[in-house]
């Protein structure tokens, strides 16, 4: 089938970008969306033109590398699907699509469809972990975890950090991403000791990085390829409000801290 692609081309972070139209006359329905762009890139390379830069790695929907806007929707029209897992059988002959990078202040464009999502790493770095050094863990079964809590933690931990939630949000909020980590660790007994600190630090870091606030629009949940629920955000708010009353910076008194 024939597909018309309009792709955002931008040479680097500082140059201006624009939409460029490409026609793909022979697209197979079994191709993935990214395989279609692979074919385009092979043609561009042979013509001596610059291929379209886009992020991808595992192509199995788990690494979180890929992601751009297809007709204004992060990862495209199919629910619960990263763009690498989106197949062309969902399109029909003659369809015209518009591809753009994720747009958010905290995700500057690097080139074409690639953006810099390192703000996510810095948020995790601010507190998205349990402080346990290698070698000091008790036996795994010493600490039973209620199955329901463990399952909920796993639901939240499924987040792949792709940034679709930010791209879809009118406020470019990272609340779904941040709350998924806060919920994952907050549901587990291991995560209780640092629960206040984690909420406090991660939420403040999110703001510092230039992400907006959550206004319960719900776009994030609708586009999340891993089905992360907006109820995570409610948990984050609860943890944050509690922490903003109770949390005190750690003191070195009484030990190394």
């Amino acid at each position: 089938m024939k597909i018309i692609l309009n792709i955002w081309r931008q040479k680097n972070a500082t140059s201006a970008g624009k939409m460029v139209r490409y026609e793909m006359p022979n697209v197979s329905e079994h191709m993935s969306f990214l395989e279609m762009i692979d074919v385009l890139n092979e043609e561009l390379t042979k013509k001596g033109e610059d291929p379209v830069a886009f992020e991808h790695d595992c192509r199995e929907g788990i690494c979180g590398c890929c992601g751009f806007m297809i007709d204004g929707i992060p990862h495209g029209p199919q629910r619960g699907t990263t763009v690498c897992q989106l197949h062309m059988r969902h399109y029909k002959d003659g369809d015209e699509v518009w591809l753009e990078p994720f747009r958010a202040k905290a995700f500057p464009v690097i080139k074409d469809l690639m953006v810099d999502r390192s703000a996510f790493d810095r948020i995790i770095s601010s507190g998205g972990y349990i402080s346990i050094n290698t070698g000091s863990a008790p036996d795994g079964n010493n600490l039973p975890v209620i199955k329901k809590c463990s399952d909920q933690a796993m639901d939240s931990a499924s987040c792949i950090g792709c940034g679709a939630c930010v791209a879809s949000c009118p406020n470019a909020s990272a609340s779904l991403f941040v709350s998924a980590k806060i919920t994952h660790l907050g549901q587990l007994p291991q995560g209780q000791a640092e629960r206040d600190r984690r909420a406090m630090r991660m939420v403040l870091k999110m703001t510092e990085e230039g992400f907006g606030y959550c206004t319960n629009t719900g776009e994030c949940e609708a586009v999340c390829p891993k089905g992360i629920k907006i109820e995570n955000i409610a948990r984050m708010h609860r943890d944050y409000i509690k922490a903003s009353v109770l949390y005190r910076e750690e003191s070195k008194a009484g030990g190394a801290g």
Binding site: I130, I132, A137, D139, G140, P144, A153
Partner: peptide, 13 residues
Amino acid sequence: IDQCVAQGVPFAR
């Protein structure tokens, strides 16, 4: 296994 459980890896239970 011990290390990963302590880190909060949500193993099946």
